[in-house]
Each structure stands twice: as structure tokens, then as C-alpha cells.
Design a protein around this nucleic acid. Structure first.
Lengths: 237, 237
DNA sequence: CATGCTTTGTGGGCTGGCGTACAGAATAAC
DNA sequence: GTTATTCTGTACGCCAGCCCACAAAGCATG
């Protein structure tokens, strides 16, 4: 079950845990535990997946790129999910750029072994279908959120999602990086983040961000944060 | 195969046609041919699908709703696709609002029969997986498009998509309706549409829109139109 | 044909975010 | 310790689109 305020540094992946025992074991046995570095590119659109990843302490961004614009984040994956879910559709290519956002550990499994496991184990597919469904719901939610909601609310939402996945009150992200995620100017982030800092909701220096007051952050955030969590919870209750 | 400039009023659905012969027949036999009316609501988020639809001359919008904002269109389905694709994930509920956008004909099939057909016919699932993949790609594309591109370009893209699915140079849509689709003010649409009319790219009176110069419309449109078409073509080549 | 409704045109003030630029502050590199 | 680089604060003009409001024009209904 996905926990919102995850300050217990986990050595597990909720999605994996939700899988039927045999499938879970099989995946772990075919995986190696690796350390993902910040900025590492795991997939490119149109290129085949080499591996799938089940993050533990790391977290990972899905980025859509349209020409003549900076990339835009459309999804964030931590130990509640996996990278490579579209493989369950028997399509080998990744649809998006996938970049490591927060360094940390993850189970890394060769894509071929993953598809093999899928074939052998129909109950695995059944659970992962749900995760794909949630991912789709997130994509459309994000489309609307990005369009309608203001930078401050979106920033708050984004910090909350990161907070959940980093499993720590502290993480490293510069304003520039946040701006890229949200698809806005760096200076817009500086202003929005400044507001949050003034109100003692967060503080930061040179990319070191601390979440001080999570409750207030939730209040500032748009409803999309709660909505996507609810969608996840509904499938993995 | 999906045709971009579809002025031959079709009595077929490309997605259906791309299915293995037996599956295609089975679906048509379990379906009835119905007439969909403008504005008809086919699904609500969280409620189970009653039917799936394979549009012929009708076309249908997927709408995301976030509280305190007008709905936003995140997908458009015509005779290149189907309504209810997420059923292949064995999840009964629809993720989005689904509303008839252009009146016309469609094959209508009870959801249960559809899931049955899926179970009986693995090759059906294989093809539909591709369509789901394309749909996901469209969602993320739309997220970025909605955020970055200006109203005129998005309007042009939207008219092109509608043109393809209406299979006619003429269709009925008021500025207000277009504004709702694009998530912008009605007056913003009036201005953008006025520009297109001045340049003799389209003309319209009281909701009756004519596409006069498709090539120019493509030039005005953002790259997202071509991009989503390419994504579709890649899977259904 | 007169009344009422729907659709479109247009105007004006407002604002969030863009684009850009620069300067100070903290860190890293040498 | 000096220099280079990275990060943050801030400022200023600008504009797309918002919000609201109203008028005109086309249709429909009785």
C-alpha cells in the first residue's frame, strides 16, 4: 500500500510487494540491485527498453519533449511503481524520455526476462494492468493540471510527490531543475519557492531543499496531488 | 490504415479492420450499428463501461475534469479507434468522461461481450495493445501541447483532427464548444478562428465550420498533429 | 414579424508567466 | 587564496490569455 508521508527509508517496492508472491520472488531473483545516479537516462522514446526498474530509494521522471520547447515532466516514478510498464503491451519501445531524478537504489531487470516472466505468469500481468491504468489516469490529470494550475500550486504538488518518493524531508534539486520539470521559467520557480520559504513551509540553499511543513504544502498544492494518490489507492487498496 | 485527409465517408473502422479477420467478424456480429447524438455521454469516470464503441462517421471526446475549471479534452476518437480501450486492462471502470463530439454512426458492443471476445481471442488483445500504447502517447503529447502551444496552433490542430474524423470539410461546432475543448476562453477562440477565416483557411457562421484550405491549416497547426499521426502510423503500418 | 435565444465580434483592464539580463552569494576547481 | 562556476534574487518590459461586459447579427418560435 502506498504511503503518502513516507519517511521510513524503504528497502522495498510497493508495486513489487503487491504482486503475487511467486511473481515477486521471480522478479527479484532475475534482478540486480543497482545504484542509479542523478541524470542517468534510462530510456529514449522509440528505442527499445533494455531494462525495467523497480525503484526503492531512487525516483525517476517521465519527460515529454516537443520541439523548440524545454522538456516537460508528465510522470514521476518511485517505489510505488516501475519503469517500463508499457512492456506489458508487448511493445518493446519506450514512449518517453526516462531520466533519474533522485539518485538511489532500484531493482534492475533485463527487459527480456521481464517479458518472459509476464508470459509465464498471468497473475503478474493482471496486477501490472492496474498500474498501467493508474499511469494513464496520471497522464490525463497532469495534462489538465499543467494547463490550469499556477506555478506555486504545481510546485507544491511536485514537492509533495518528490517528498513521498525520496522518503526524506531533504532532497537535492535546483530551481532550474524544478523549472524544467514544471515547464516554466527558472525565475518563476524562484519566486514561487521564495513564497513557500517565507511561510516556513520549505527552506533551501543551493539546491538543498527541506520540507518543513508538509501539511501546509498540501494546502498550497492543487487537488491533483490528492487525486492521483486516490487513483493509485483505488487500484492497490 | 489511417488516412489523414479522409473525405471518403467511410462505413468502416480502421482499428476493426486491422484486427485479425475472425476477431473483426466476431466484434461486428456482437455489435449493433447505432446513431450517436451530439453531446451524448458514453462514460463517466469511475463508472463501469456499459458498451464499447467503434465509431464510423461519429467522433468522440475524452474529457478530463479538474474541479473549479472547465473540462479539458485530452483525446479524440474517430473511426481510427475505439471507446473503451482500457477494458483490455481488465478494469471495468472508465477513467474519463466520454462525450459524443460529432454525431454519426458507430458499432456499439456490450462491454461484457467485448471482454469475452478478448479472453477467447489472444490475437485481438495483441492488436488492441498497440492502440492503447498510441493512446498513451497521445495523452502525454497533449499534456505538452496544451501547455506550450498557443491557441491558434492548437485550434488548427484540433480542426485537423476533427476534419479527419468527420470525413467532411464541413462540421458543426460553436466557438464556445471549441473553447471548452481547448480549455480557453470563448473570446480567445473567436479571435483565433477569425484569423484563420481572414486568411481563407476556414470559414464559419453560427457553428457551421468549413475547412477551405487544409494545407494551410497544417502549416498553422503545431507539430503535435503530425506527431500523433506518426505515432499511430508506426503501430498500424 | 416580433420576440427571444444563440452565436459571434469587440473592447478594456488585469495578471501570470515569459524573456532577458544582471548582480550577489555560495561552492568548486585550481 | 584566487578564480571560475553554479545557484539564487530581482527587476523590467512585454504579451497571451483571462475575465467581464455589451452589442450586433442570425435563427427560431410562436
Amino acid at each position: 500500500m502506498y504511503q503518502e508521508n513516507g519517511l521510513t527509508s524503504p528497502q522495498n517496492n510497493y508495486l513489487l510487494e503487491s504482486l503475487p508472491g511467486k511473481a515477486c520472488e521471480q522478479i527479484i531473483q532475475s534482478s540486480e540491485l543497482t545504484e542509479l545516479k542523478f541524470g542517468e537516462v534510462l530510456c529514449e522514446p522509440g528505442r527499445p527498453y533494455k531494462h525495467v526498474y523497480f525503484p526503492l530509494t531512487s525516483f525517476i521522471s517521465l519527460m515529454e519533449i516537443v520541439p523548440n520547447h524545454p522538456p516537460l515532466e508528465v510522470g514521476l516514478i518511485g517505489n510505488e511503481g516501475m519503469v517500463g510498464i508499457t512492456l506489458i503491451l508487448s511493445i518493446k519501445e519506450a514512449p518517453l524520455h526516462v531520466v533519474v531524478q533522485g539518485p538511489g537504489t532500484a531493482y534492475k531487470m533485463p527487459a527480456q526476462k521481464f517479458t518472459l516472466a509476464l508470459r509465464e505468469n498471468p497473475s503478474l500481468l493482471r496486477m501490472l494492468n492496474r498500474y498501467l491504468f493508474v499511469t494513464m489516469a496520471q497522464l490525463s490529470q497532469t495534462a489538465a493540471c499543467t494547463h490550469f494550475h499556477e506555478v506555486e500550486a504545481r510546485l507544491a504538488r511536485w514537492l509533495l510527490m518528490t517528498h513521498d518518493r525520496a522518503h526524506a524531508d531533504h532532497f537535492h534539486l535546483t530551481h532550474q531543475y524544478l523549472a524544467d520539470m514544471l515547464g516554466v521559467q527558472r525565475s518563476a520557480v524562484t519566486i514561487a519557492a521564495g513564497m513557500l520559504q517565507q511561510r516556513n513551509i520549505i527552506n533551501y540553499t543551493r539546491g538543498e531543499i527541506n520540507v518543513l511543513d508538509r501539511k501546509s504544502l498540501e494546502a498550497v498544492s492543487c487537488v491533483c496531488y490528492a487525486a492521483t494518490n486516490a487513483a493509485y489507492a483505488k487500484q492497490f487498496a
